[in-house]
Design a protein around this nucleic acid. Structure first.
Lengths: 339, 339
DNA sequence: ATACAAAATGAAATCGTTTCCGTATTTATT
DNA sequence: AATAAATACGGAAACGATTTCATTTTGTAT
């Protein structure tokens, strides 16, 4: 397409090596020729071929981001944060969405084994005991960063929120509002966030002397309509909860839909608090939704900063086996406050 | 990292060329050696270096997608659609978000001039008369596909929805519901979608014999809070509209927020219809929002199919200068229906 | 003027593929 | 049986950059 180094060199009656060095501002080249080279390069709009460079340097200036869902403010925001930092350093983002499908995730990870990206930032779609693909990658020394849904067994850097505490506080809030039968809504039980959030929920119940009713702990699927119906069934059953802690935002929306199919009312008959990313939507729901909100953009930025550090400085050590906790904030709205 | 062709060849006592051909299933290689090569390649987990390949073949198996916003169901859904098709053909997606910033868009487009991607799919952030960067790219023969927010002057393939008709119908719906003073909310006037949607709005008013009041045509910024205040000002002014057609989803949300700051009520005092992607949210708003919904995933799929066709078949002609229209659907909900 | 160090540039290898071209062996044709 | 054609493979160039090593040019000290 454009002009290449050799052509530039020919035009300038210089060797390609000199031109390369001039453009990379090497000390070996005189100021005079540097200027000549740079000005012609600009004039001819010379763009170095990224693949030639990647091949030679064995780095791609590309970071892969793997998320479970794209239509999800939480993940979208994290990616925005990553892009904000990495783009400024000339990095490109390959963004893959697994649609919560583990097989798809494995395929994607396998595709990335060949060095197409210099690092991976991932929030796993569902943590099976089988995270062989990620393990292998990490063992080969490939920079790997987790956020939100992590694999704790893989010793690398992770960014999460204070899931346990947030969940504990959220549950406590429901208890303080008079809830006696508090349900816990989740996706896969294998997810790190599920475990931690469940743990906070459980401990809050314990502390309040409330018995945990396992029938109130519901695991949901990827099928929206099915989820709504399950919730509705629960709500019209004898064992109806009077409070819900939803560990996933979209399950709160499903609950609102389910409630519309009953003659119950939030917060009168049912109070609900949820981990939820989009505060605009939370505030516009009827009633407005009490949320636990994670600073997702910040998480993305932190991931980005860490990777830039690792990838752009020479002789960096492996990413430390460390988990950074960025606290969430509870915003109390009408869905948990008695009128 | 992994093993390369030369090493594979040495292990097999074959030449690299033979191994390469065997792996690419060339007719020149006997079945026997093909099997030997393939099995060792599998055993040693051989992964071809993508950059060597890209350099040699002059294609990257990568498609760049440029969107104005990532936290937006509309665009997220289109990207999902693109990924659905292209991933199955071994393509990777570089996703860039401009945050509605034209300068940022230009920078990104310039970065893509060097062949890092084989094609670009873009919804422009704001169409200035100055779309030099995209024009240049297209003139160089670079495959470029537009969706939603297009540059009509650039002769390539575009995917849009029936903006004019949807807007016309939407406005008519408001008129039928008794609205006399109908406002039109938009982002930049330069956007193709704004022009078309405005045109449909205008013609519907004309047809109904309603005079267009330019004070009811509001252009908004990227500042959420400021937008909400502007809307509130409008709503408490003498010139208060009784209907709103919002050409952008988030302006409908801003309107709901603004209404909460007044003592007005939807749909009693104000009816609103909006182009809006997330029907779950639309149905949960209070009152539920009448929407014009575009089949965004389908648009993404169509973009993907077109590009796969263009990029994987040999000797393909340039992308045709053609605009495909994928119709939207109006869903009437409570925000436009008198109680 | 000579010697030697420093500065500036060039030649060629390299990264890992693919592919053009050449060659040896086997198979088919008359 | 001699020749043509098909089959199977190897050697080396090519893609476009960077970098090691070698070489030329310039500057400085004696």
């Amino acid at each position: 397409m454009g002009v290449n180094l050799k052509e530039l060199a020919a035009e300038l009656k210089l060797s390609p090596s000199t031109v390369s060095r001039a453009l990379n501002d090497s000390f070996e080249i005189s100021e005079a020729t540097k200027q000549k080279v740079i000005s012609l390069a600009k004039k001819l709009d010379y763009q170095p071929n990224p693949f030639a460079r990647s091949l030679r340097e064995n780095k791609s200036k590309t970071i892969a981001v793997i998320i479970p869902e794209r239509i999800n403010s939480y993940f979208a925001n994290v990616v925005d944060g990553i892009e904000e930092i990495t783009q400024a350093h000339g990095y490109h983002l390959l963004v893959y969405c697994t649609q919560e499908d583990v097989e798809r995730e494995k395929k994607i990870v396998n595709l990335l084994m060949n060095g197409r990206a210099d690092a991976i930032v991932i929030s796993v779609s569902s943590q099976l005991t089988d995270n062989f693909h990620l393990n292998l990658l990490h063992e080969r020394g490939f920079p790997l960063v987790f956020f939100d849904r992590i694999c704790s067994e893989i010793p690398t850097t992770k960014y999460i929120t204070n899931n346990y505490e947030s969940s504990f506080e959220g549950t406590n809030h429901l208890i303080q509002q008079g809830c006696k039968k508090i349900a816990f809504f989740m996706l896969s039980k294998e997810l790190s966030i599920t475990k931690e959030r469940y743990s906070g929920y459980k401990d809050a119940l314990d502390q309040a002397g409330i018995n945990l009713d396992s029938k109130l702990n519901l695991t949901f699927s990827q099928n929206e309509e099915q989820n709504i119906e399950s919730i509705k069934e629960l709500l019209i059953s004898d064992n109806r909860p009077d409070g819900i802690l939803s560990s996933i935002g979209k399950l709160a929306l499903a609950t609102y839909q389910a409630v519309k199919r009953t003659n119950l009312s939030i917060p009168r008959d049912l109070k609900i608090i949820s981990f939820f990313a989009d505060s605009t939507v939370a505030s516009l729901l009827n009633p407005s939704l009490t949320t636990i909100t994670t600073p997702t953009f910040k998480i993305g930025e932190e991931c980005g900063k860490l990777l830039i550090q690792k990838l752009t400085k020479p002789k960096q050590p492996d990413l430390p086996n460390q988990t950074f906790v960025i606290p969430s904030k509870i915003t109390i709205r009408s869905s948990t406050i008695e009128i």
